[in-house]
Design a protein around this nucleic acid. Structure first.
Length: 573
RNA sequence: GCGCCCGUAGCUCAAUGGAUAGAGCACUCGCCUUCUAAGCGAGCGGUUGCAGGUUCGACCCCUGCCGGGCGCGCCA
């Protein structure tokens, strides 16, 4: 009989071990081995080396000093005082004084059974307690197609959303875009120039004009009086090359539509598209400015209005209102974030390119100056570094000025959605990323996406084979026979499955989607190795059922993890 | 010059303050009549940029250097 139902969650297997240790420590305190006032921080860790058992605790190393003894001696006393548990096969003392725990067959069997019960719920938890989180990502200005950098933001941001959701948060995905201001003026002027037949080589080409070929297509569409629609607006070209306002509206709608198509191809959906212009039209910018002035953090200098951001850790004060009367970009940004706060988001995560990192201090300073009881470190930021694209062993040069760069759509068309999402999310976002197109499109085990998906398809394949051989799998029989999984490789595989829920937690808490990708790769690798070394469809019906049951558990975890990455889990490849 | 990020095997990258720093690619050597066939297994490869510090224990935390990226605008 199990004295503990750990519900398939290894963190609770860890908790169980921590409880055992805690009991032992109390015993040692009673016996006077440990002083009564020790405050142990019991940590139970996963082991890297199977020789070290399944879990390990460093407790003796941290308490040896207080006990006035050496760690190994203390760990012996702790082990002697550990209560018996059906989940723990044995303990060993190793190295400088680690206590290694070997879990019992009964424990691993109940974990597999639990995964089969929970299916797609396995790994999910309610730590977020339905609190509201907003993740703002991509937020590309409608001045061109989405490029690979936006793609990284989309992949990381969407995966973060899925992770937060898996941890019980109520998630809002938001896309903020600048539909006014200087960049849009440049866009409109560029399109107008193309409408009039100018090229970037002409002397009268706009100074900061956009040179990409997409501007030509845009201009042609406008002149043909086509109608474009995006999520929130529809506009028909007038064909009038002198009507700069009409061109501006058409251009924004056109490019928003293009971006919508890109995001759709990438399977990224947003709940809210927030227009910068709405902050002006609804008076939120003016209201924020008034509050900042009323709070005494502003001053006039050289005909401009400044915000004393240095009061909140910035290097220098920032201009809010230019001498021409317009606001600088960060003023609506502050108003925007106040609006987010007022919408009741407990947590806001802004996923953006690291080249905009300087906005962090500014936005937070502005929010503090509003004195609206917004926490100092609010909002959170996840920044991603640049992406380098490799093809044929050479770097694909990206030049925005020349208008030549790798668009997200190019990538999706060339290597597929799954590979694109995986490669862009599988690296820690604050490291530079090299995207190898040849690797991403290869259909071999060299390609990690393929390798992971193949592991899933392989399980499905075993079941197809099962039917071909007129054999069957019975879940109840399989679960009952799980004790037959006596191989070390099987046990380690189960232990690895058991790590999944804590990986989901840690990835969300540290805002690191790449941890999911790493975990899946490890799991897939372990499963492939197991598959290659042990036959699943053996004669022994009991063992066969047990192994099939394990395979189903692997399939569930792979599918759940791939879902968090937004990568499909094919049944056949 | 200032700020942020990065620096780990030849390359691309991992690693909860833990034990002998791990994968894949490349290279070398075996294997492949098999539930999936596009492969499987093993080997080679390291002063974790450098120097200190904290700690029982440091790739990880702190300080200072070196190197690279990004940002330092009344653009966004």
């Amino acid at each position: 009989m199990h004295d503990l139902k750990h519900n398939g969650d290894h963190t609770s297997m860890k908790q169980h071990i921590a409880d055992l240790i805690n009991t032992a420590l109390n015993t040692l305190i009673e016996d006077g081995v440990l002083p009564a006032d020790v405050q142990p921080r019991i940590m139970v860790e996963n082991t890297r080396d199977k020789a070290h058992g399944d879990f390990a605790s460093n407790i003796a190393l941290t308490l040896a000093k207080a006990a006035g003894t050496n760690p190994r001696e203390l760990s012996q006393k702790i082990c002697a005082a550990l209560p018996a548990s059906d989940n723990v096969e044995k303990t060993e003392i190793a190295g400088p004084g680690f206590i290694n725990f070997f879990v019992s067959d009964a424990s691993t069997a109940s974990l597999v059974a639990s995964i089969l019960e929970q299916k797609d719920q396995y790994g999910r938890n309610n730590d977020g307690a339905d609190r509201k989180v907003q993740v703002e990502f991509v937020s590309a200005n409608p001045t061109g197609p989405l490029h690979i950098g936006h793609g990284r933001g989309a992949a990381v941001g969407d995966c973060l959303c899925r992770l937060m959701d898996a941890n019980g948060w109520e998630v809002t995905r938001e896309f903020y875009y600048n539909d006014a201001g200087q960049q849009i003026n440049n866009l409109a002027l560029s399109v107008q120039a193309r409408c009039k037949g100018l090229t970037p080589e002409d002397p009268s080409w706009p100074a900061d004009g956009y040179r990409g070929d997409y501007i030509v297509e845009l201009a042609e569409s406008y002149m043909r009086k086509e109608t474009v629609e995006s999520a929130d607006q529809t506009f028909t070209g007038t064909g009038d090359a002198d009507d700069i306002e009409a061109i501006r509206h058409f251009a924004v709608a056109y490019l928003r539509h293009e971006q919508d198509l890109d995001l759709k191809a990438f399977a990224v959906d947003f709940d809210v598209y927030f227009l910068e212009s709405s902050l002006y039209s609804e008076g939120k910018v003016d209201a924020a400015v008034k509050t900042l002035i009323d709070n005494g953090f502003t001053y006039e200098d050289g005909g401009a209005l400044w915000l004393r951001t240095t009061d909140f850790g910035d290097d220098k004060d920032r201009v809010m209102r230019k001498t021409d009367g317009g606001y600088t970009y960060f003023v609506p940004d502050v108003a925007y974030h106040l609006d987010k706060w007022q919408r009741g988001f407990d947590t806001v995560i802004n996923e953006q390119g690291a080249d905009h990192h300087s906005t962090i201090t500014r936005v937070r300073a502005g929010l503090q100056a509003l004195q609206a009881d917004i926490p100092k470190g609010w909002p959170d930021y996840v920044l991603h570094q640049m992406v380098t694209v490799m093809k044929g062993g050479e770097e694909v040069k990206i030049s925005k000025r020349a208008g030549s760069y790798v668009t997200l759509r190019d990538l999706i068309e060339e290597v597929g959605r799954d590979a694109t999402r995986y490669f862009l999310a599988a690296r820690k976002s604050d490291s530079h990323l090299t995207f190898d197109i040849d690797l991403a499109r290869s259909e071999s085990a060299d390609n990690p996406v393929y390798y992971i998906q193949y592991a899933h398809a392989r399980v499905c394949s075993i079941f197809r084979k099962l039917a071909d051989n007129e054999l069957s799998w019975d879940e109840a029989t399989g679960v009952a026979a799980l004790g037959r999984l006596e191989l070390e490789s099987e046990k380690r595989l189960v232990i690895n499955l058991g790590r999944y829920p804590e990986v989901v937690k840690r990835a969300a808490n540290s805002r690191e989607p790449h941890q999911i990708a790493n975990y899946l790769y490890d799991l897939a690798s372990e499963f492939h190795t197991y598959y290659n070394s042990e036959k699943t469809l053996v004669e022994d019906a009991e063992l066969r059922n047990a192994r099939l049951t394990l395979a189903v558990a692997v399939r569930h975890v792979l599918a759940n993890g791939m879902d968090l990455l937004g990568v499909s889990a094919p049944e056949q490849m």
